[in-house]
Simulated assay, not measured.
Amino acid sequence: MRPHLALIEDDPDFALMCRTYLEREGFTVTWAMDARAGKAVMHDGGIDLVVLDLGLPDGSGLELLRALRSTSRLPVIVVSGRGDETDRVAGLEIGADDYLVKPFSQRELVARIGAVLRRCRPPELPAVLDVGTLRVDTAARQASGTGVLLNLRPKEYALLEALARSPGRVFSAEQLLELIWGASWQQSATVVEHVYRLRGKLSRLPAPAPRITTVRGYGYRLDP
Score class of each variant (00 low, 15 high):
L54W: 04
A67C: 12
L62E: 03
L62I: 14
L64R: 05
S70P: 00
A35I: 01
G38K: 10
S70H: 13
G59F: 12
G38Q: 09
D48A: 14
L54S: 03
R66M: 07
L65T: 04
T71C: 09
G38N: 09
I47A: 01
G46T: 05
L54N: 04
G55R: 11
G59Y: 07
A35V: 02
T71L: 03
A37Q: 14
G38D: 06
G46S: 04
A37M: 11
L52R: 08
L54D: 01
L65V: 07
L54F: 02
L64P: 04
G55N: 14
A37N: 10
A40Y: 00
D44I: 00
D44V: 00
G61D: 12
A35E: 08
K39W: 15
S72N: 05
K39M: 09
G61W: 07
D34C: 07
D58R: 13
D53F: 09
G61V: 13
G38I: 11
L62C: 04
R69I: 13
R36H: 10
A40P: 00
V41H: 02
D48C: 10
L64F: 12
D58Q: 10
G61F: 04
S60W: 02
S70T: 14
D53Y: 11
R66A: 15
E63C: 01
L68F: 05
D44A: 15
G46H: 03
M42E: 04
V51Y: 03
L56E: 08
I47W: 03
D58A: 06
G61Q: 10
G38Y: 07
E63P: 05
D58K: 09
